[in-house]
Simulated assay, not measured.
Amino acid sequence: MESASLGGRGGSDSAQVPRFIEVNGARLACAEQGQGAPVVFLHGAGSDHRMWDRHRAIVGQHHRAIAYSQRYFGTGAWDSSWPPLGVQTHADDLIALLRALDAAPAHLVAWSYAGHVVLSAALSHPELIRSAFIYEPGVPSYVTDPAELQALGDDMNAMFGPVFGAVQRGELQEAVRVLIDGSGQREGYFAAQPAERQAVYLDNARTIPPLLSQPQPPHITCGDLASLKVPVTIAYGELSRPVFSVVSRAAARCIPGQHLVIRGATHMWPEEDAAAFCAAVLGFIDER
Score class of each variant (00 low, 15 high):
G11P: 00
P83G: 14
L152W: 14
D53R: 14
S5F: 13
G34Q: 02
G60F: 08
L179H: 07
R64T: 01
L152C: 09
Y236P: 01
G76H: 08
H107I: 01
I95N: 08
M159I: 13
V59Y: 07
Q33W: 11
A191K: 07
A121I: 07
Y189P: 03
A274Y: 00
P38E: 04
A235E: 06
Q33F: 13
Q258L: 06
V117H: 04
A276L: 11
L85Q: 11
A195K: 12
G138M: 05
G11C: 14
R177S: 12
Q150A: 15
A251L: 03
T144H: 12
W111I: 04
S248F: 01
P231A: 09
Q150H: 11
F160K: 02
F164H: 15
I58A: 05
E127H: 10
G44P: 03
F190T: 03
E238I: 01
Y135L: 00
I262L: 05
V23L: 12
A226H: 13
V200G: 06
E171A: 15
V176F: 05
S69Q: 07
Q258Y: 02
D13I: 15
Q150I: 03
A77V: 03
S14T: 04
V87A: 05
R54M: 04
A280Y: 01
G60A: 08
A175W: 07
A26Y: 08
P140H: 09
H43C: 02
V281W: 12
L152T: 06
Q33E: 11
V17T: 14
F133P: 07
H49C: 00
L128D: 07
V23R: 08
L149D: 00
V118K: 11
Q198S: 01
D102G: 15
G25W: 10
G7S: 10
A192Q: 13
L28K: 09
A121S: 13
R249G: 03
D79E: 13
S3Q: 12
A251K: 06
H116A: 14
S227P: 04
R197V: 14
W78G: 02
P218G: 10
G76S: 14
A91G: 08
H219I: 13
G86T: 05
F284G: 03
R9L: 13
Q216M: 14
S227D: 09
C30G: 02
G34V: 10
M159T: 12
R249C: 00
Y142D: 09
R197I: 14
V39Q: 06
Q16H: 14
H49P: 00
G223S: 12
L212E: 07
G44N: 05
S248C: 02
H55K: 01
R54N: 06
L128R: 10
A275H: 10
R177V: 15
R50H: 08
D203H: 12
V59C: 10
V247S: 01
S12Y: 09
Q168G: 13
G60I: 09
L212G: 10
G10P: 00
H49I: 00
A67Q: 04
